[in-house]
């Protein structure tokens, strides 16, 4: 399963238990939906802001 969230947040923001639980439930329920090994399911939710620039700077500065 792929979630387009920053590294460190595959289950969403901190202290959002309902949201985290939904992501986890979606991941587990994939086993009933997929028909091919290696299939990637995208979670359609978006992060609250575009983190591309922050991540790019961070990775290139490491």
């Amino acid at each position: 399963m792929f979630v387009n969230f920053p590294m460190g947040n595959p289950f969403g923001p901190a202290n959002k238990p309902d949201y985290q639980r939904d992501i986890l439930r979606t991941a587990l329920e994939m086993v009933n939906r997929i028909t091919t090994a290696g299939e990637i399911v995208d979670v359609k939710d978006s992060w609250q802001n575009d983190f591309t620039e922050k991540v790019t700077k961070s990775l290139l500065a490491m």
Binding site: P6, M7, G8, N9, P10, F11, G12, P13, A14, N15, P17, Q20, R21, I23, L24, S58
Partner: peptide
Amino acid sequence: YDTTDAEIDVNTVFP
């Protein structure tokens, strides 16, 4: 990676 949220709530990376 940025561990800020995981340090506040480990469920973000280990639910």
